[in-house]
Structure formats: C-alpha cells, structure tokens
Design a protein around this nucleic acid. Sequence first.
DNA 1: ATCAGTGCAAAACATTTGCAGCATG
DNA 2: CATGCTGCAAATGTTTTGCACTGAT
Lengths: 159, 159
Amino acid sequence: MSDELAPPDWAAHAAERLAGAGYRRGGARKAVIDLLAAQACALSAFEIEEALKRTGERPVARASVYRVIDELEQLKLIARIDVGHGISRYEAVHPDGHHHHHHLVCDDCEKVIPFADDELERTIHRVADRVAFDVAEHEIVLHGSCGDCGRRRRRQLIG
Amino acid sequence: MSDELAPPDWAAHAAERLAGAGYRRGGARKAVIDLLAAQACALSAFEIEEALKRTGERPVARASVYRVIDELEQLKLIARIDVGHGISRYEAVHPDGHHHHHHLVCDDCEKVIPFADDELERTIHRVADRVAFDVAEHEIVLHGSCGDCGRRRRRQLIG
DNA sequence: ATCAGTGCAAAACATTTGCAGCATG
DNA sequence: CATGCTGCAAATGTTTTGCACTGAT
C-alpha cells in the first residue's frame, strides 16, 4: 500500500537532472519541486498553486506552475495522472521505479487514493511485452466508492 | 486484440435502456448512438460532432453531444476514457462485458489503439478484491510509441 | 550583459449551462 | 399541449501563450 512520502532526495535528484539538462535555478521551480517532494500522492495544478500560496516557501504564479510541471514531465521526473473530472494530477517519479503505484478514485467524493500491487506490476510487464507497441509507461485507475461513500450509499439504499 | 466493431444491436440495447429510464426519443440522441455503435474504438466529443456534421445521419450541436454523452455514461452504456492531452473519449460498453478492452496511446502521434488481455483482466479482478475499496470499473492505459513512431524515432537516433 | 525564469493578463481550449423554440408522447 | 429535447450563445474551468521585467550565470 506504499503511501509513504517521497524521500527528501527526490528534490535533489530533480534539481540535478534539471541542471544537467541546461536549466538555470529559479525560485518558482524550486518551490514547486519542494512541494511535490513532500507529497504522498498526486496534486492538481490548482492544488499546487494554492498550497504554495498558503504554506509553501513562496507563492508561484499559475503560469509558472504549469511551466515547471511541463519541464518536469518532459524529463520524466513527474508523472501526469488523468483520473477524469477534467483535471490532471502530477506526482514525483523515482529513478529506480521505487514508490511506483496506481490510483483508486472515488467517483462520489473525488478522493484519490494510492495503491501498489506486485502481482499487477508483473502482469502489466508481461502484457507490455506481448503487445505490438513500445510501452514506456502505464497508468491504472480503479473507479468506485471509497469506504466512506460506499457506506453512505448503502445506508441510503436501505433507508 | 478484439478490435471488432460494436455489434449493431448495441444501439438497440441503448435505446431500450434509455426508454426504460424514461427518456423520450430524439434525433440528436439517436445520431450519436448510431455513430458510437459503428466505432471500433473511443471517440472524443469533438470527433463525434465532426463525424456527424460530415457523414452522420444529421449534424448535432456540441451541447447536445455532451448532453447525450452524459446520459449514456450515467446509464453505463458508454465508458469515458481519459488518455491525457486534456480530452475525454467515449466508447460503447456492452452489457455482458464483451468487447471489454483497454488502450495503447502513442505519445508521439496521439493515436489510440485498443487491446484486450485475459490475464490482465483476471489480475485486475483479484486486485480489486484485495483493496479496501468498492471497485466498479477499471481503466488501463499503456503509453509509449506505436510501430510507426517507434521506427521513426529509432531512425532519428541513428541519423 | 546576456538570456533563462517569472508574473500578469489575455487567449485558447474542452465542457457546462441558460434559455427560447421545436417535437415527442 | 405539456414537457422533454435541441440549438445557440454565453459562462465556466483548465491549461497555454505573449510580453515585459526580474534575476541567475
């Protein structure tokens, strides 16, 4: 169920990769990276902007959030996750494939919950070898109701 | 690899379910259903609107396309697929779970290719039982390069 | 001093909603 | 003939872009 925080050195790793790719240092970029490094699961651009406005090391303009996201995604330092509802979410990707996980999405309350499963990973890799396609990444989303909403729903059916 | 067309009676099935749910008949709704019934894979709202404008039984306004999509999705007659790039795609869902499949997405040319895999389905169902979550649907997207783009990319690396 | 990085405002999208008129049951 | 269905246009929400200014190297 690995929902530990991203280890603190992901930020350092990202900074290194960015420097290697010729990027200069910048305050907005660092603020977004530090925030993402501290997350247990994916954030939307809006959530990133809000978090930095309130409690981050400094506020960052929306456009800069998107620009940083784009840079990080191109270097595969973060992954974009589309769980529907028209917004994208982003989370740190670790170099060794560690902390790799997928998502449960509650279609009632829109909560996003990470989960990991080794059997699923093994199967996905076998499938990736089987298809006539050069698979680089995979994204698995399980939709349904989380514990709270499932309980609420069942109560309604009874009442 | 099941990329057969949806069988013609999906449209009839959908019409029946809609009637049962209290919907009246309408030209726009029928045009969208007939189009979706004839597809091998998921279409975006824009693609649906364009297809109906050009070659469909009649053109349908964008708002109506979205409204019909919404109705069909609520009755689980279609599935929404989010492959990124900010747009949603929709495809017919068959009552018996037949023709159920997932998607390969080429991140170069944005092509979407359906694939099916029994082992993967079995694994997903086991995982769904294992998590503390009431799983209703699952969506699996494999990102990478399709045959054409992979070849093109390899040539560039050499040249 | 150069040129990347940033903020702001406006633009470009996909999608939703309000409302007036048409058509089904 | 009442009410659901549809089209149009405007609103909404997310993401992108243009441009002037700031700041890293």
